[in-house]
């Protein structure tokens, strides 16, 4: 029952945050880059519901656009990391043997480094910018998905229903994708929801450090690093981006719990 409630609350939160982020990709009430010094540090009002920042830019517009970028980065990371990781996990788990052994040892090697450090290395090779961030984080995320999927596949491949499918004359690829994959979807969704959080947080962290998304793109992390100096004079300029982040992490976290239960 508790899981179900978590799932519903998480689902609503995650959906709301996702809509917010998606809207930010296409629409903002003001130009997020337009400065209006007369509005510097203006508090929340009807015209600017989240107030304005140190250059008089509309915080809502910037938060929308920043969230949009964050969403793009997180989704892109999942496509690369989740997609390739899942494929890798499926094949290594199912077929085993020396390729499995080799890929998993390489995985261990990557996991031994903190993911943000690895991403930093990639960025220093590729240069900053949102597409490079997606690529770097995506590569860094592959091992964790591969590992999760592999362990599940190993559990399922020895079950009698797989033998039964073999006796039906079903080929390996179909067994893998049609018979086994749907049975591990809950674990996979749960991992994807957590992965989404981790990717968004990593992006925010990198942008905060100045090596992630570059101006003029806004991102939640960049907004927070730019405005943290004004935390006490104009708390709204930090508060609202931070709040968006917290809601997102909470929403996807609950959703992940619900799926894994």
């Amino acid at each position: 029952m508790v899981e179900k409630r978590n799932m519903i609350v998480g689902g609503i939160l995650a959906a709301a945050v996702t809509v917010f982020m998606l809207v930010g990709l296409f629409y903002t009430p003001y130009d997020p880059e337009a400065m209006d010094l007369s509005m510097k540090f203006a508090p929340a009002s009807l015209a600017h519901p989240f107030g304005c920042d140190q250059f008089g830019r509309d915080v809502l517009s910037r938060a929308l656009q920043g969230s949009g970028v964050t969403f793009l980065v997180a989704a892109g990371t999942l496509c690369i990391g989740g997609g390739l990781g899942t494929l890798l996990g499926l094949f290594t788990g199912y077929f085993g043997g020396w390729p499995d052994e080799m890929i998993m040892r390489f995985n261990d090697l990557i996991v031994a480094f903190p993911s943000i450090l690895l991403a930093l290395i990639f960025i220093s090779l590729l240069g900053p910018g949102k597409y490079n961030v997606i690529l770097a984080l995506g590569i860094v995320f592959i091992p964790s998905f591969a590992r999760i999927v592999r362990s599940q596949v190993i559990v399922h491949k020895d079950m009698d229903y797989v033998k039964s499918a073999r006796l039906m004359g079903v080929g390996h690829l179909r067994i893998l994708f049609v018979h086994i994959l749907p049975n591990i979807r809950r674990t996979l969704f749960s991992a994807l929801a957590i992965g989404f959080n981790n990717a968004a947080l990593s992006e925010a962290g990198m942008s905060y450090l100045g090596i992630g998304v570059q101006p003029p793109d806004a991102s939640i992390g960049r907004m927070m690093s730019e405005t943290q100096a004004y935390m006490f004079t104009a708390p709204w300029s930090v508060l609202f981006p931070g709040l968006a982040m917290i809601l997102m992490v909470l929403g996807f976290g609950l959703l992940s719990d619900g799926w894994s239960a």
């Binding site: 079950m159 009698d160 229903y161 033998k163 039964s164 499918a165 006796l167 018979h179 749907p182 049975n183």
Partner: peptide, 18 residues
């Protein structure tokens, strides 16, 4: 023709998702 099999554990021999 190729033989078929009936398994011991009826809980794992049918794909739970289908």
């Amino acid at each position: 023709s190729r033989p078929q099999m009936v398994f011991q554990d009826p809980f794992s021999s049918l794909n739970p998702g289908k």
